[in-house]
């Protein structure tokens, strides 16, 4: 069902929805950007339509709602422990197609990998209904069309701002429909981006020999001098799932406390350190290679269906060293072509 919802009515509907749902959307935090007097756009609970940022891509992804940067996973007292309970109120999560498609990737890693389902992911994901934010076209860091993540039908409802403070909405979820009884019907189905300003061709790596030669290729060395290993790209990434655990004791008694799950980054030095001091990826170039190949080769080699990267471009936007993921993939493609040429492929 399609509806036209005036600004006032939209806020009324939001108020009603908030009685039964937590509503998360990209929100502007004035002055909280990396540089003075710049804003930060990230996900948070919203109460009014005007709080939701439609026209700009958020700096941080929608995944923060489902896999928060930090969460308690269990509490312990001496030899007893119990898992954190989590909340039960369902969530309406406003997201663009890239962010929604990213959940296919996160679900694969948390709940479709090695025959084990991650309780903390699954129980949160089950609470979420997506509200598709029709993408107005993204920016020049976006390349969803190249990654096949420009479209989605995983949404309970879809919205487009009408330019007058209200919305056009398509409501597909039966449980959401009653909230729209006051809104006049209108023809609306969301449009999807069909091409981006920037296009990416993921590298074709046909065999292990090429892969090993690519691993040793000098293309990665550039990043030893450019990447500062801060991890901003992975925090901004719609799909990255890596976390570490932290035990926090509450006071001076080490037997009472909680275990937390905290986001980790493969780009931060020390991520691959092992007991005994061995490190698999000691240089920034090694770590960049690991990330790029995971997003544009390894994940698909393991799971088959799609690449891990959804082309949201946030890693490029957030990189303080101006490293572009699309330019990097282009350089990798050139390296692969060189290797395949030398191998006579």
């Amino acid at each position: 069902m399609g509806f036209r919802i005036e600004a006032g009515l939209a806020d009324e509907i939001l108020r009603e929805l908030k009685k039964s749902y937590q509503i998360y959307a990209p929100k502007r935090f004035p002055g909280q950007g990396r540089f003075a007097e710049t804003d930060l756009i990230r996900y948070d609970e919203v109460s009014a339509l005007s709080e939701i940022v439609f026209d700009e891509k958020s700096d941080y992804p929608a995944k923060e709602v489902i896999t928060p940067i930090q969460q308690a996973i269990f509490y312990f007292t001496e030899e007893e422990y119990r898992a954190s309970r989590g909340k039960s109120k369902p969530i309406l999560l406003f997201a663009r197609p890239c962010d929604i498609n990213a959940q296919r990737v996160q679900a694969k890693i948390y709940a479709g990998n090695g025959g084990y389902e991650d309780l903390y992911y699954t129980r949160m994901r089950e609470r979420v209904k997506f509200v598709l934010m029709e993408c107005p076209g993204g920016d020049d860091t976006c390349f969803c069309a190249s990654m096949g993540t420009n479209r989605t039908d995983d949404y309970g409802m879809a919205v487009r701002p009408d330019g007058a403070g209200g919305l056009l909405a398509e409501v597909r979820d039966e449980e959401l429909l009653p909230y729209f009884s006051q809104a006049p019907a209108a023809d609306f189905t969301p449009a999807f981006v069909t091409e981006n300003e920037t296009a990416v061709t993921p590298p074709e790596i046909p065999d292990k020999e090429t892969l090993l030669k690519l691993k040793a290729h000098p293309v990665w060395q550039e990043f030893n001098g450019r990447c500062i290993s801060c991890g901003a790209c992975t925090l901004a990434c719609s799909t990255c799932t890596c976390f570490t655990t932290r035990d926090v004791v509450y006071g001076d008694n080490p037997e009472v406390g909680e275990r937390r799950r905290v986001s980790a980054s493969c780009q931060v030095e020390g991520f691959s350190d092992m007991a005994g001091g061995h490190s698999f990826r000691p240089t920034a170039g090694d770590r960049m290679r690991y990330k790029i190949l995971h997003k544009f080769h390894d994940y698909k080699a393991r799971f088959g269906d799609m690449h891990m990267c959804v082309g949201c471009g946030r890693c490029t936007s957030r990189c303080p060293a101006y490293i572009s993921v699309t330019a990097t993939v282009a350089k990798v493609n050139a390296a692969v072509a060189e290797i395949r040429g030398a191998l006579g492929q």
Binding site: F29, Q32, L40, R42, Y60, C230, A232, L235, S265
Partner: peptide, 12 residues
């Protein structure tokens, strides 16, 4: 400037 996660922000 350094924080990758936006955990430090300037008070407006």
């Amino acid at each position: 400037k350094a924080c990758p996660a936006g955990a430090w922000t300037r008070n407006p």
